[in-house]
Design a binder for these strands. Structure first.
Length: 851
RNA sequence: GCCCGAGUGGCGGAAUUGGUAGACGCAAGGGACUUAAAAUCCCUCGGGUAUUUCACCUGUGCCGGUUCGAUUCCGGCCUCGGGCACCA
């Protein structure tokens, strides 16, 4: 009998489904376990990244379930988004059709991989039954003042024809299409995530189950700076300007003042003066630059306004400049410049020949302004600072704020890099924002009983701009307050809104009375294990944390964080090929190092994440046909630790296939023993002991390794067990040996079940069992059977291993030294030398020091 | 520049508390079986010196320290990967 996965994999998938074995319900008598994988965007096909993500999650889910936990393991579709709309433009296909057919296709592919999802909880975020509740959340956010509409300068992607959140701009480019992002002034909806900045940051220190890397990225993104606001008076008027600084201790060293070109005071300051004309030109020049240009070009440029402010600590007059490197959207848009102790201010001072005044002296060094080539930004003691002289810079920070606070000239202040989340999108395929504009009553939310505001079906996708604007039936409506004529909001919500709460909806996906059923959420949430790619470290994971905190404060939730443990799995990569003329090549287009199209040299490119554009994609569907689901699943978890990158290797897959074959042969060729012996073996006899030990040791290692997500070593432990069983199979002598062997094979099938569930079920059935292995109890191991009676004691002499001795377990110090110190090899090292020290570590080693 | 993470064979990677570095797998080489191939099985596999075999030296990015003993702990560096970045 040969291992032929295509003969039975679909059979088991069908049986699991027919018997509803992955369908789970609230059961207060059982401990719950929520295993969640990031829901996919229905792009059309499952790719290797999905397979890896879901294989990891499936091992954990199946394992936890076999351990007796009530495991919820849902799957759904992040179904709104631009690709559906682009497909509509190109192929004349409605985004809904395109999306739902992709979902059907991908669901089929997932089922063929045998993942243990509870499909009764499936959610598609583009369904009105889903986004209805999102609209309700949105209105409640608005009622709490956490959603607001504001005219502001926003990121605009000309290619996608929509606004982007700050999180969606990478290096000045659109995260989706890489076009250069423009700045545009528009009236937009925002969510006040900044109100939660402090708590979001604080909890990054409490999330013990998250990778440090992700927490750091979130901390960087939130970017908290502790400092002070200081008020400066103008020399020639009663006006004041406030600056934010993290270095109030350097206030005595301020030698000029800088304002952002967009600062609201700037135009007034130069109005009617000789500086007006050139100043306006300077401002206009900077305004012309896009985000990428302005940050790329680090050259400091400034313009003197002709005005002066007074330094509140020493009444010095400081010239006021407009500077290109001062940003309006951070701090107050005004900066006190301390060239001696700030890198950028130093460059500016050099450029415009402004004075540099040292106020911090580092220990053991004497700074001299004429000789400095760069600013000194480190620690030190204060000088040239009046009453603060001699203070440490940290103390001076507090002292100076205290002093100035008496005259209301300063206060302690905190600034965040995090901006409010812009969620308006000028696209069709998203959840409509449930607001209307009435001529009489102004902006009004749609009444709850009228939700959802459904997307209209008949729309012209080929038009310019937002297709929703052209749908008269949709736009024209009545006011929920006065019933008069009103117009609907046509912006839709950012698709990250849907993924910010879907894990809550999974708990009661069909609840039609509220966002979710609180009882269900109280039982299942928070998520015990969340698994997904590192690319969501900031955007999705920050938004979901924000939503959780907001819903908690609205009384919907009674916990602070949605995801207790997070695993960020690495990418699946493969080598690439490139030709100078024809660009990226498929491996099939390369022959003997030459490009098949033009015959020139094909260059082996970097190992990169699998992507269509780089032509290095491996289709899981084809692999499934070739090797079966179990092999792909096993490879995905065995190739590397989950958080590392996997470099795709056909040979590696082949190796996993070979291993499953090896297991299949081992079990099938010993089927008679497996069936005939059902009693518990006794722990006697060399062969039986070896078998039982190998079994308990494997169970121990696999159990512990899955728990700490070392799935690769869990698989190696099973491989080792199989190797031992192959050797033992030759040596079975009596009934007890065979009983041990039978016990071991049964255990092997059981511990394989989370990794290769199909072959495990098949072997289980071949062994005459009628139950599902997926529903079997995970085996327990007994420590006393994992250890051997004999142990090897290593002898180190002056730190080097010189000999090995076999002793009975727990041999005493005296016994060991008696043998060791009589051994001729050991003695040869001691000859003519003095034995200075003897160290004995039980069951491990002896260490001798000689002189 | 600031902040995180990581450096171990030809490769992916093991070593859970400081205790025989290289588990498991891949690749490579040799052999068995076979008319042949596939499949399977066995042996070798960090580097070096031996080969009168069983041995010795060296080795976990580099330099130093602690220790009987360091991939693991401490100090200093180097390199790579990632995040943030005219953020005041």
């Amino acid at each position: 009998m040969k291992y032929n996965p295509s003969a039975f994999e679909s059979k088991w998938q069908k049986r699991w489904e027919e018997n509803n074995i992955f369908k789970r319900e609230v059961d207060n008598s059982k401990e719950k376990y929520y295993c969640l994988e990031m829901l996919p965007y229905p792009s059309g096909n499952i790719h290797m990244g999905h397979v890896r993500n879901y294989s990891i999650g499936d091992v954990v889910s199946r394992f936890k379930f076999m351990q007796g936990l009530n495991v919820i393991h849902p799957m759904g579709w992040d179904a709104f988004g631009l690709p559906a709309e682009n497909a509509a433009k190109q192929n004349n296909r409605h985004p809904a059709d395109w999306t739902y057919s992709n979902i059907a296709n991908m669901k089929e592919q997932l089922k063929k991989l045998g993942f243990s999802y509870d499909w009764t909880r499936e959610v598609a975020t583009c369904a009105p039954e889903y986004y209805k509740w999102e609209q309700k959340i949105f209105i409640e956010l608005w009622k709490k003042g956490l959603a607001y509409k504001k005219k502001s300068l926003v990121n605009w992607c000309p290619e996608c024809e929509t606004v982007l959140a700050n999180e969606q701009v990478e290096d000045g480019h659109c995260w989706r299409c890489s076009s250069i992002v423009e700045m545009k002034e528009l009236e937009q909806w925002f969510l006040k995530i900044t109100e939660y900045a402090d708590e979001l940051l604080e909890y990054t220190y409490k999330l013990k189950g998250w990778p440090e890397k992700v927490l750091t990225m979130q901390r960087n993104w939130i970017g908290k700076s502790i400092g002070a606001e200081i008020i400066f008076k103008f020399a020639d008027s009663d006006k004041t300007v406030t600056v934010f600084t993290t270095r109030p201790d350097t206030l005595y060293g301020a030698t000029f003042m800088l304002l952002a070109p967009e600062h609201p005071m700037v135009k007034d300051l130069i109005k009617g003066t000789e500086y007006e004309q050139d100043g306006l030109k300077f401002i206009a020049d900077i305004a012309k630059q896009d985000k990428a240009d302005r940050t790329d070009n680090k050259q400091k440029k400034g313009f003197f306004t002709g005005k002066y402010v007074i330094n509140p600590v020493n009444n010095t007059k400081l010239p006021v400049y407009i500077a290109n490197y001062v940003l309006m959207d951070y701090g107050t848009g005004a900066v006190m410049a301390v060239p001696a102790h700030d890198t950028r201010d130093f460059e500016f001072a050099k450029e415009y020949n402004l004075p540099i005044k040292i106020v911090i002296q580092p220990e053991g060094e004497e700074l001299n302004p004429d000789k400095m080539t760069e600013a000194y930004t480190g620690a030190g003691k204060l000088v040239n600072s009046g009453e603060l002289n001699g203070l440490d810079y940290d103390e001076a920070k507090k002292k100076i704020i205290e002093n100035l606070a008496k005259d209301n000239a300063a206060k302690a202040s905190v600034n965040f890099r995090l901006r409010d989340w812009g969620i308006s999108r000028q696209r069709y395929w998203g959840a409509p924002i449930p607001f209307v504009y009435c001529e009489k009553c102004g902006m009004q939310p749609v009444k709850e009983e009228d939700l959802p505001v459904e997307l209209p079906k008949n729309v012209d996708f080929k038009c310019q701009g937002n297709p929703l604007d052209t749908v008269e039936d949709f736009v024209n409506t009545t006011c929920p307050v006065c019933c008069g004529k009103a117009k609907r909001e046509t912006d839709t919500m950012d698709t990250f809104m849907e993924s910010s709460w879907y894990f809550l909806r999974y708990c009661s996906p069909k609840c039609d009375t509220n966002i979710f059923d609180k009882k269900e959420v109280d039982y299942w949430m928070p998520v015990d294990q969340y698994i997904g790619g590192i690319e969501h470290a900031v955007m999705h994971l920050l938004y979901a944390r924000f939503f959780t905190k907001v819903l908690r404060d609205m009384g919907y939730l009674s916990f602070d964080e949605p995801f207790t443990n997070l695993l960020t799995q690495g990418m699946v990569c493969k080598e690439t090929w490139k030709c100078e003329k024809d660009g990226w090549l498929f491996p099939s287009e390369v022959k003997d190092g030459k490009c098949c199209k033009c015959g020139s040299d094909a260059i082996k490119g970097r190992v990169e994440k699998m992507s269509k554009s780089k032509k290095n994609v491996v289709d899981p569907g084809i692999l499934n046909d070739q090797y079966g689901a179990d092999t792909i699943r096993l490879f995905s978890v065995f190739a590397a630790p989950p958080e590392n990158e996997i470099e795709w290797s056909e040979n590696g897959v082949e190796g996993c296939y070979r291993f499953i074959n090896r297991v299949f042969r081992l079990v099938v060729s010993n089927m008679d023993i497996l069936k005939a012996y059902n009693d518990t073996p006794e722990f006697v006899g060399k062969t039986a002991k070896t078998i039982i030990r190998a079994t308990h040791a494997a169970v121990k290692k696999v159990t512990n390794d899955i728990a700490r997500f070392q799935l690769n070593t869990a698989v190696s432990a099973i491989m080792e067990m199989v190797n031992t069983l192959y050797l033992a199979a030759e040596k079975l002598e009596n009934d007890n040996d065979k009983a041990a062997f039978s016990f071991s094979l049964n255990t092997l099938i059981t511990i394989l079940a989370p990794f290769t569930p199909h072959v495990a079920e098949e072997l289980h059935e071949l062994a005459g069992k009628t139950s599902f292995i997926a529903e079997s109890r995970w085996p327990e191991y007994d420590e006393k059977y994992t250890i051997s009676d004999e142990i090897v004691i290593v002898v180190q002499i002056n730190g080097k291993v010189r000999a090995n001795f076999t002793f009975p377990r727990d041999a005493e110090e005296n016994t060991v030294f008696d043998t060791v110190l009589k051994d001729s090899k050991v003695l040869s090292y001691l000859e003519g030398k003095e034995l200075v020290k003897k160290i004995f570590i039980k069951n491990k080693l002896v260490s001798l020091v000689v002189k």
